[in-house]
Design a protein around this nucleic acid. Structure first.
Lengths: 131, 131
DNA sequence: CCGTATCCGATCCGATACTG
DNA sequence: CAGTATCGGATCGGATACGG
């Protein structure tokens, strides 16, 4: 039984090279999910994206876009104007990722209150343990 | 319009404190997804989990379980035997997370071939550019 | 068995400066 | 406008040792 069947019945064994990790590492970073969301309505230029993502640095965004491009989730198109323009667009493959991403995003919104309550309870228990 | 509506129509603005990131950071780490999967069939003890996760260190697993516990996604129960035993179990809240996680996991499996092709193409383009 | 503590190298990320 | 280059702090994760 290989890891593809991991969600079938039975207890599974995960190796470090679990196939899910090969991709999960690349998209579970700080900005990827938001970049894809920003690009959802249509193509956008570098600084346009940057303006939507408050707090992102140029380096972080460049790295993120480069990684998304390498993985085939966004495409990059140079517009030969002066000064130069670069437009990023979500690919069909990137759009397929949005489906599970949106599900996860909705989960975070729905679960947040419960998680915050759990955190408060946990931290309170730790406080208690110190005394 | 706040970020809750981010998947509705229109271009959105993301601040650093996007509510999704408050949680996403915590669960998008190296082992959380696999830990929840391993715990899916039922409760398990520390070293039992560790044995399923080939390559995880004690520290990494402890940190991961602690974080999952703090966020209310798993529960921890000390079994007063000698030597001591500790059992981890997925919580009802944790189970709700499995739904989007499984969707994402399936996506990684389905998309992997296309992503690998995209990577190869990207890397080939870079090679080309060097020459 | 189940941790915690410590060190330590790798890596991420932001800040800054510079370029076509 | 859209990068690249570089530096340094913070954080992550592995290895190891030790304790209840």
């Amino acid at each position: 039984m290989i890891e593809t069947d991991v969600f079938a019945a039975g207890r599974q064994h995960f190796s470090v090279e679990c196939p899910s990790r090969l991709l999960f590492d690349q998209i579970a970073d700080k900005w990827s999910m938001m970049v894809l969301t920003v690009l959802d309505p249509g193509p956008m230029r570098f600084n346009g994206i940057k303006r939507q993502l408050e707090g992102v640095t140029q380096k972080a965004l460049t790295d993120c876009l480069r990684r998304l491009e390498r993985n085939g989730l966004v495409s990059r198109r140079v517009i030969p104007v002066s000064p130069i323009g670069v437009e990023y667009e979500i690919t069909p493959l990137g759009r397929t990722l949005q489906v599970p991403f949106k599900a996860l995003y909705r989960w975070t919104l729905e679960a947040l209150p419960q998680v915050e309550a759990a955190r408060a309870a946990f931290d309170a228990r730790r406080e208690e343990a110190v005394r």
